[in-house]
């Protein structure tokens, strides 16, 4: 979406134009859902949090006063995620067992059916995703939020800072801590990190 279009849509939506707002929803729903999914680690909860985020974004749209709309929306969705986590903490729905079965609980993601991947590659990718999610789940919430925004959603430091309302220095340090911890955690899944992945990773940089 071009920035001009976005600005026009936002100002229409601020005047109550629901169609304009829904155009923005379509543009951002994948990003919000993925953010919620990585913070919460549960698809259903993430979908609920995303819907709640859009509802509260529409109601609080007049509170948006310029700047990165993406960051503003991400702030809204992280807030609904925090609410969701607080609710979950008060009423735990999953038994308090060691998460040995963590890997088997998630459904097969859509891209499992990607014809470009061989069955082994798909299986590897699924396992790797589980491993990463497992490690994210074990990060303190404020680190998790920052690393999800910066590395999974590709926001720059300024956008992350405006989304979590913290100074740049804090973002830098939280991101470094999150990456360090994730590095240690992922080393526990060394067998899941085949050479192919590393090579791809280095080429991607």
């Amino acid at each position: 979406m071009r920035p001009m279009d976005e600005t026009a849509l936002i100002s229409s939506a601020q005047q109550g134009d629901l169609d304009a707002f829904n155009t923005l929803v379509l543009a951002y729903q994948d990003m919000l859902f993925n953010t919620a999914l990585r913070i919460l680690g549960d698809e259903e909860l993430a979908a609920d949090a995303t819907q709640d985020a859009f509802m509260s974004a529409f109601k609080g749209l007049n509170g948006y006063r310029g700047g990165s709309f993406k960051a503003w929306l991400l702030r809204t969705v992280t807030n609904t995620c925090y609410d969701e986590l607080r609710r979950k903490k008060r009423r735990p729905t999953t038994p308090l067992e060691p998460d040995a079965s963590d890997g088997e609980e998630m459904d097969s993601p859509r891209w499992l059916a990607d014809p470009a991947l061989t069955p082994e590659q798909s299986a590897e990718a699924v396992e790797l995703e589980h491993a990463i999610q497992h490690c994210l789940d074990h990060l303190p919430l404020e680190f998790r939020t920052v690393v999800v925004m910066a590395d999974l959603q590709g926001l720059d430091y300024t956008e992350v800072a405006s989304a979590v309302r913290a100074p740049l220095g804090t973002i830098k340090s939280r991101l470094a801590r999150a990456r360090l911890r994730l590095r240690e955690c992922l080393q526990g899944f060394a067998e899941l990190l085949p050479a192919r992945m590393r090579l791809q990773g280095e080429m991607a940089d």
């Binding site: 995703e129 990463i132 999974l152 990773g201 991607a204």
Partner: peptide
């Protein structure tokens, strides 16, 4: 760098 690359290539659902 590897860690960051792994995170970045995590597919978007």
């Amino acid at each position: 760098r590897q860690t960051r690359a792994l995170l970045r290539q995590l597919p978007q659902r």
